[in-house]
Nucleic acid binder design. Sequence first.
DNA 1: GCAGAGTATCGTATATTTCCGATGGACAAG
DNA 2: CTTGTCCATCGGAAATATACGATACTCTGC
Lengths: 102, 102
Amino acid sequence: MKPIAQTDDEAKTVALLRAIAHPARFRIVKLLAARDTCVCGDLVDALPLAQSTVSEHLKVLKDAGIIRGTIAGPNTCYCLEPAALAWLEHEFGALGSACCGV
Amino acid sequence: MKPIAQTDDEAKTVALLRAIAHPARFRIVKLLAARDTCVCGDLVDALPLAQSTVSEHLKVLKDAGIIRGTIAGPNTCYCLEPAALAWLEHEFGALGSACCGV
DNA sequence: GCAGAGTATCGTATATTTCCGATGGACAAG
DNA sequence: CTTGTCCATCGGAAATATACGATACTCTGC
């Protein structure tokens, strides 16, 4: 793939979007937003995917900065990173302002 | 890829996200948002990509419903579809509300 | 120390995406 | 009618993403 010259902000936004733009990962984000409890094993039960696959998706989301992982004794607890969602909301707000005179 | 059972809203949102979650396409959306003029050939000049590649990206964005293409004589004019951006902004707003009690 | 539950990582097969050059179609000018 | 411009589509090559099973790791409780 050709990276294309882009600003840091663009790169950051695209990275966040790529992380969420996947059915399984978007579902994970929605699950985390819905339940207050940031359970991890429950995600494996909630998704029709293998445990290793879910774990990798969580890794992608964590690397992108969308979720945060905390080790809570025997299991790991994940929760959303509000700043990431706020950033995306802001980006879309900036885009929505202008359009070709509709 | 395994599609995962999902609602229509989820599918719609993910489809929109997948369309924008690419450096070249995100750049295109930003260019269209910045300039009022929805020129098409200028996009090819603005991007370090072949004409055919840009055309395919535009097709993806159009299929996703993010942009609209209008034939204006010899050239084609593209502009943003405000409803799509509004939908995404709304989706993120719904997500941002909750988080694991930070 | 040992066993068990819960996660993370590795290696790999498959499917998809991305990009390009070449080709084809539509339109305007001469 | 011929030419040139602009855009869309085709076919294929290369890179990437996705999902899985197997395996290694961490912490708890006995």
